[in-house]
C-alpha cells in the first residue's frame, strides 16, 4: 500500500511538471486521495502517540481482518475513528491509552517487547486471553475490560463503513415509491419456518 502511495505521489509530481494531461492528473488525484484514505496514511493522530497508533492499527486488523479482498478494521477507518472520538472524550482516550499501556506491560513480561513488536503468535496469545470473559482473573481483568471497548469500537467502525455495508448486504435508506419485499425472500423464510406449506 505504501509503495502504491509513493508511486501515486510520483505521478502527482509528474503532473505538476506538466507531463500528464489535466484529465489524467485529476484521475491520479482521486486515486491518490482514495489510496491515502484507505491506508490511513493521510490521517495525523490527534491523541495517540505514533506507538499507540501503531498498536491501535494492529488491534483493528486483528479484530476485523481483511478477508477475500474485503476491507478489514484498518481499511474501514477504525484507527481514525477511535482517535477522532478520543480527541473529544478524555474518558475514551484514557480507556485506550491505559489499555494499550496494559497490553504493552503484559507483553514485556511475556516476551520482553511492547505488544506491537511481539511476534504475531504472542499477540494472538494475548488476545485469546483477553477476548473472553471466561478468562476473568485479577491479572487479566484490565485487559478484558479494554478489549471489550476495542472490539466494540473497531466493529462499529467497520460495520458502518462502505466495506461493512457491502459485507452485510445493507441496501436501505434509498427511497422507493411502493414498499415491497422480494417474493423469493418471503418464500425462503416461510419454507424454513414452522409455517411451511407441506
Amino acid at each position: 500500500m505504501i509503495e502504491r502511495r509513493t508511486l501515486l505521489c510520483a505521478a502527482a509530481a509528474a503532473a505538476l511538471a506538466g507531463r500528464l494531461s489535466p484529465a489524467e492528473a485529476q484521475h491520479v488525484h482521486q486515486n491518490h486521495a482514495a489510496a491515502a484514505a484507505q491506508a490511513g496514511g493521510a490521517y495525523q493522530p490527534r491523541v495517540f502517540t505514533a506507538h499507540e497508533y501503531r498498536t491501535l492499527r494492529l488491534l483493528a486488523g486483528m479484530i476485523v481482518p481483511p478477508e477475500n479482498g474485503q476491507a478489514g478494521g484498518v481499511e474501514a477507518g477504525a484507527p481514525e475513528f477511535i482517535d477522532t472520538l478520543a480527541s473529544g472524550s478524555e474518558r475514551l482516550a484514557d480507556i485506550f491509552t491505559g489499555g494499550i499501556a496494559w497490553m504493552d506491560s503484559w507483553m514485556r513480561a511475556d516476551s520482553g517487547t511492547a505488544f506491537a513488536d511481539a511476534p504475531p503468535v504472542r499477540r494472538s496469545a494475548l488476545l485469546d486471553l483477553i477476548a473472553y470473559r471466561r478468562n476473568a482473573a485479577p491479572a487479566l481483568n484490565p485487559g478484558i475490560a479494554f478489549f471489550d471497548w476495542a472490539r466494540r469500537l473497531v466493529v462499529d467502525a467497520w460495520s458502518t463503513s462502505p466495506a461493512g455495508y457491502e459485507a452485510l448486504g445493507y441496501q436501505g435508506n434509498r427511497g422507493m415509491t411502493v414498499f415491497q419485499v422480494p417474493e423469493e425472500a418471503l418464500r425462503y423464510a416461510l419454507q424454513r419456518s414452522p409455517f411451511r406449506e407441506r
Partner: peptide, 29 residues
C-alpha cells in the same frame, strides 16, 4: 429487518460471541 448498521448495532453480538477475527465477523454477518 436489515436496519441501517450504526454505532452500537452489533454490540449485542460482540458481547454474546466475544472473540475476534474471522469468527467474530462471521457471527456478525
Amino acid at each position: 429487518g436489515y436496519g441501517m448498521p450504526q454505532v452500537g448495532s452489533f454490540h449485542g453480538v460482540c458481547r454474546q460471541h466475544e472473540g475476534y477475527g474471522a469468527p467474530l465477523k462471521k457471527a456478525i454477518l
